[in-house]
Design a protein around this nucleic acid. Structure first.
Lengths: 339, 339
DNA sequence: TTGAAAGCGATACCAT
DNA sequence: ATGGTATCGCTTTCAA
């Protein structure tokens, strides 16, 4: 392992000079700069994270976390994992600032980002798909703030990182699973949060792709529940009442899955095959009661943990992520392996 | 964040004394020791990992990795993840020593452990279930060496840590999955590595439990392939020839799964539902060809990564694991989410 | 433009 | 038994 001191000795300069070159702080004669850069490259210099971390304690970098999550069970796990990571990283001098919002509001997210711009070094955000927000994030990125989008990406934004799942694949996986465990003839009722949400639309698209080649499988109706259990309950009841042939229920988002399962139960003795996303507590319960047969798990804890790690590695250790997108696998969970 | 220096100042002693107390190196008068301990507790002292890591560079702790894995595809992923982690941790001064063996040999594992005893600070091992090995590991543990068992646990050994999967649950999950996607009547041929391997026996037990209440599901024959594809091929052929009613094949270990699937293919036009463990390259290929319908994934990469992390946190950061056993989830993978 | 020195937190070692 | 000092690798600051 090469150190700054070794490079300095070999180049006949001081450690300070090497540091200035490697961290692009300027004020070094061009020829020396070249020599040092070449030497560093030749010896494959990699800064020691422990040294960096120790020195970083003097500056105390700050990370803002913006999650519109109150009342969304899926995010409970994300947040819990992030809090654990934050505690660990605090020992290294990294501070966190939490903004847990209620619902999705573009103006609010923009306003918070404006306030933060001058105070923080990094932002982890679950962004709304909106061009105004993208513009705001671009401002922060231009100002040198490290941005990580979690669980939903914003393609329009500039250089940033994404941690989340592959929604299209999630829908496809669910569709493929349905074909394996479903009845011969499937009349499918689909419930999702909102067609305005890119992720939900993508899951629907994946699901349609998966069953496209199976004529016996048709989607009878698609309803939106705005991730609300009460709305999910009544709309699902309406749908099931209107379509006596529906024998499969698919929940493409977990916000209202409990409500819609309760609606299915209320139609007894009618029986349904029910598949959902996420293994939130209510879903585990419904699995035990044999109401929900399977769920797609999106690794919420890993998502939170990875987002925090990317920020830490960058701010404290000076290491850039090796990928732009970190995509979690869509796992199939049934009662036996749901944990 | 409290530092050793602060505690030293508050107690009116030197940093060296505080260090001796907190790391139980002795040579401190009892009263001072008490005072320092109380102060540390009161201020909730937590050592700074970066400081520890930096200081650890002077001693260069060494970790030995003992895996009997040549030719076992499952371990390729474990090893790859461990190598990546080793590279990262090398920057912090942790060295690794690799012993990749061919097959399982108690004497060889014991001999290697004997050699290592005086040279290393930690051992990560995939141990054979044998009391001689357990005794040898206990010697190392008594000598203060940090021991992590990976993918197979040794209950007889003293204080050590385990990273791996829950075999019984793996078998149960596979059985439950079979009931969901299987035919009405299932005559099951089971192939496993060896009944001498605890993990394989446990999976079998889990599988039997899962289908016990389903009379239409019976295990017709159980064969051993010693994790060898050639043996798996010929024994599976023999089994399928002898039992024309077998319509389901279950591979409880991945060592010979390719061979046994090839045997199933060779019986065309007979068709089988085939379930296996692990998503090794040959299995992914067979999934694409629609020969294997599903696999149970044991997170090999996470296993390797976690084992390395436990050792690193202990040796370099002085942090003991918060659990004794780290159990990975058994995931269900089909073609669409196999990656 | 450059070098020298101090400091981040913990530890090893040498005096006493 | 205890304190002082140097060190790990990197950054920052001050002086030249």
């Amino acid at each position: 392992m090469v150190t700054i001191k070794q490079i300095a000795d070999l180049c006949g300069v001081s450690r300070g000079t090497v540091d200035r070159v490697l961290n692009k702080r300027g004020n070094v004669k061009a020829e020396k700069r070249e020599l040092i850069l070449q030497m560093a490259k030749k010896l494959n210099y990699k800064p020691n994270p422990a040294g960096k971390a120790l020195a970083a304690r003097k500056v105390n970098p700050v990370t803002a976390i913006i999650l519109p999550s109150t009342g969304i069970a899926f995010f409970d796990d994300v947040i819990d994992a992030m809090e654990k990571a934050a505690k660990k990283y605090e020992d290294y001098g990294m501070r966190t600032q939490w903004h847990i919002l209620q619902g999705y509001n573009v103006e609010e997210q923009c306003r918070i980002l404006d306030e933060l711009k001058s105070q923080v070094n990094a932002v982890i955000i679950n962004p709304i798909n909106d061009s105004r927000l993208a513009a705001k994030l671009n401002e922060l990125i231009a100002a040198g703030i490290f941005v990580v989008a979690i669980n939903n990406d914003l393609e329009q934004a500039g250089t940033h990182y994404y941690v989340g799942s592959d929604y299209v694949n999630g829908g496809r996986t669910m569709g493929a699973l349905l074909k394996m465990i479903g009845p011969e003839q499937a009349h499918i009722g689909v419930i999702l949060g909102s067609l305005k949400m890119l992720g939900h639309r993508q899951r629907l698209q994946g699901l349609k792709t998966a069953i496209a080649a199976t004529p016996a499988y048709t989607i009878t109706e698609i309803i939106e529940d705005n991730d609300d259990n009460i709305a999910a309950f009544s709309h699902t009841r309406d749908m099931l009442t209107a379509h006596e042939d529906i024998n499969v229920l698919i929940n493409l988002s977990s916000g209202g899955s409990y409500g819609s399962c309760r609606a299915a139960l209320s139609m007894a003795p009618r029986k349904f095959l029910i598949l959902v996303f996420d293994t939130i507590p209510t879903t585990k319960d419904l699995m035990e009661k044999n109401v929900v047969q399977a769920a797609i798990y999106q690794h919420p804890r890993q998502q939170g943990q990875k987002a925090m790690q990317l920020v830490f590695d960058y701010l404290v250790n000076g290491i850039l992520p090796d990928k732009e997108k970190y995509i979690m696998n869509n796992e199939i969970r049934i009662l036996e392996n749901v944990q």
